[in-house]
Deep mutational scan, measured.
Amino acid sequence: MASQGTKRSYEQMETDGERQNATEIRASVGKMIDGIGRFYIQMCTELKLSDYEGRLIQNSLTIERMVLSAFDERRNKYLEEHPSAGKDPKKTGGPIYKRVDRKWMRELVLYDKEEIRRIWRQANNGDDATAGLTHMMIWHSNLNDTTYQRTRALVRTGMDPRMCSLMQGSTLPRRSGAAGAAVKGVGTMVMELIRMIKRGINDRNFWRGENGRKTRSAYERMCNILKGKFQTAAQRAMMDQVRESRNPGNAEIEDLIFLARSALILRGSVAHKSCLPACVYGPAVASGYDFEKEGYSLVGIDPFKLLQNSQVYSLIRPNENPAHKSQLVWMACNSAAFEDLRVLSFIRGTKVSPRGKLSTRGVQIASNENMDAMESSTLELRSRYWAIRTRSGGNTNQQRASAGQISVQPAFSVQRNLPFDKPTIMAAFTGNTEGRTSDMRAEIIRMMEGAKPEEMSFQGRGVFELSDERAANPIVPSFDMSNEGSYFFGDNAEEYDN
């Protein structure tokens, strides 16, 4: 993207840094990872977990959730003011799984939030270390993106479920800051804005008074975040219109849905970061690795190297396929839920299948599930090659597409044709070009129609051997075009429920 120079890199967003050079960025990201790792080690000690239990991804998720809940100030305040039966607002906890007599047992633990905050700050040299908290939120978000298709949420806001490739980060909490905003897809931002506008339509006082002023500035800020994701002048001009509207209503909703559809071809720039579970960072720190000293990046080879040398386990339900569970977590670790499966298959070195073909449910185990038949197995999170994460949407291309997802959002900077089903997408653009945004709409449609099938995206960008740390010898991959490109292809993934 041309304006790259004016933006802070995501590592800076990730670490609240002012302008830093590459070495400083690597050190501050490393410091953040160190903090998460030290916190995780301490929690495993508190909970008396064995090494194996500490490497269980379900335990990692519970521990991450506990610290996120302990620092969720708004919710904590709300819980104190609106006490609900049987919930102690000062405590947080969740299921911890232990191996007892050759069987997995679930144990519900409860801790004072104050105590968890103390352990977290102690692991982070006394700081609140917001960057580390956001990092864990993005890992949870990436896992949700890989596990669930947001059909219901899309339909509720009037969008087409086939636009799911635009929904990265749709389950990120509001408090995820600049680093969170960077990884949100165009569809996620559109959905947040539509929800806001709908509230304004239904509630006369939404934009009024002292609160209304705050609401208005939040609305304009979200519009600017979305505008910054678009790469064409016409899309940005249309966002200006939406932002400046005196009284946002149905016309703005129409414009936003139009823009979301246009992003299936004229893709937005959305950041991709490899955020790993805390149970990967903990053992690495415990083994003596100093992330701050060595430096770390979320968008280069580092996460690949770390996963190459990590042992992570997962509980497996009786009829689940461990290899499929591994694929789910591998995609989440690489922030690749909406990437082209052919690119992923090449990088991973084994075939990556669409969601609907995987015999696996989510990673988390519900409290009512029976533990008797639970097994555990090693997650295979290694890769054959590594590639640089991208934040450009890439230019655009036609490809055989599917009944489910009709476009992709690249996660890796790797040369390819970008699949999208042009006739299906263009069919949504018939007729409606009147109104105050008509010239911009016409211009956007013209650009979409001009998108050429034979153009290559990320020209000359390749993948790298894991021994090639400096990215000196790019390998331009070859793809098996007979395979499906979309992950949520004609899909039956479970729906995400809060």
Results as ranks from 00 to 15, higher is better:
L79N: 13
I316P: 08
E454Y: 14
G180F: 10
Q149G: 13
N397K: 01
S486C: 02
S335N: 01
L110C: 07
R436Y: 10
E114W: 04
I445W: 07
S310W: 02
R150Y: 10
P161G: 03
G404M: 13
P410W: 08
T15A: 08
W104T: 05
V280F: 12
A332C: 11
M136P: 04
T45A: 06
E320V: 07
N321L: 00
K351L: 04
L226F: 15
R391L: 05
L266Q: 10
I316A: 15
S274M: 10
T45E: 09
R208E: 09
L298G: 06
G200D: 03
N21L: 02
G268I: 08
G362P: 08
Q308L: 03
Y111T: 15
C275N: 10
E53D: 15
S376M: 12
Q409E: 05
D160P: 14
G187Y: 10
E494P: 05
N397W: 14
D16L: 10
V285K: 04
S367R: 04
S9N: 15
I25M: 01
R117L: 00
N370A: 03
R26A: 01
M32A: 04
I406A: 12
Y296T: 12
S141N: 09
D101K: 02
S28M: 13
C279T: 05
P477N: 11
R99W: 10
L266F: 15
G268M: 12
T157W: 08
K214V: 02
K305N: 05
D421I: 14
D128K: 08
R118V: 10
K184Y: 08
K98P: 03
K103S: 01
A387N: 13
D439C: 07
S262L: 09
L379S: 08
N144R: 06
D112T: 15
Y10N: 00
S486L: 10
T396M: 01
S457N: 01
L298S: 05
R267S: 14
R99L: 00
G169P: 03
E252G: 15
W139R: 13
V190T: 00
I119A: 04
A271W: 09
N247W: 05
S287T: 07
A181E: 14
E292A: 00
E455Q: 12
S69P: 14
G435Q: 11
Y10G: 07
N492I: 02
N321T: 15
G5T: 02
C44I: 15
E220Y: 11
V29K: 07
A278F: 07
A263H: 09
Q241M: 06
I25Q: 03
D290G: 14
R348S: 14
R65N: 15
L264Y: 06
G132M: 11
D16T: 00
D340T: 13
M426D: 09
R19T: 01
H324A: 03
Y496V: 13
F338A: 00
M136V: 04
S9Q: 14
F464K: 09
I406F: 08
L193T: 06
P161K: 05
S170C: 15
G158V: 04
A284S: 12
I116Q: 09
R391N: 15
E454I: 13
G185Y: 08
N21I: 02
C279W: 13
V270Y: 10
Q20G: 14
S359V: 00
K103H: 09
K351I: 03
P318L: 14
V67Y: 10
C279N: 12
A332V: 08
R174Q: 13
D491P: 09
S376I: 05
A286P: 03
N224E: 05
L341W: 12
I116E: 12
V67M: 07
M238V: 13
Q415A: 14
R121N: 03
A493P: 05
K48P: 03
I138G: 10
T62K: 01
V67D: 10
S165A: 15
M191E: 13
R162E: 10
M448G: 06
I265A: 15
D439G: 14
R121P: 14
